[in-house]
Computed example of a mutant assay.
Amino acid sequence: MPAPQDVPIRDESIRLGQFLKLANLIESGADAKAVIADGLVSVNGEEEVRRGRQLHEGDVVEIGGISVRVSR
């Protein structure tokens, strides 16, 4: 699998739903809710079902075989 692409954030942390949108992995917040609820998103290799999960620098989010890493 290719190395995750870095996606910079402005603050110390970001919520998972917001990050998916920032990284252009989904179209809208409603999409975030659906893909997360369906168990299609993992954080650091573990399925994540909380849209409000706080992500920090270095966290790796994966959806549909695409990996992105939170960077500052």
Rank of each mutant, 00 (worst) to 15 (best):
M1S: 14
A3C: 04
P4A: 04
V7E: 01
P8Q: 09
I9S: 02
I9A: 05
D11H: 13
D11S: 14
E12Y: 10
S13C: 09
I14M: 06
I14W: 01
I14P: 05
Q18A: 13
K21M: 11
A23D: 07
N24Q: 15
L25V: 12
I26V: 15
E27T: 14
S28M: 11
D31P: 05
D31Y: 00
A32Y: 03
A32N: 04
A32C: 10
K33E: 11
A34F: 08
V35T: 07
D38L: 08
D38P: 03
G39V: 05
L40M: 15
L40V: 12
L40R: 12
V41A: 00
S42D: 11
G45C: 09
E46M: 10
E47W: 02
E48R: 02
E48H: 02
V49F: 09
R50C: 06
R51Q: 15
R51G: 07
R51S: 13
G52P: 05
G52R: 06
Q54S: 15
L55D: 00
L55K: 00
H56K: 15
E57R: 13
E57L: 08
D59W: 01
V60M: 06
E62P: 06
E62D: 08
G64N: 12
G65V: 07
S67Y: 05
V68D: 03
V68F: 00
R69A: 14
S71Q: 14
R72C: 12
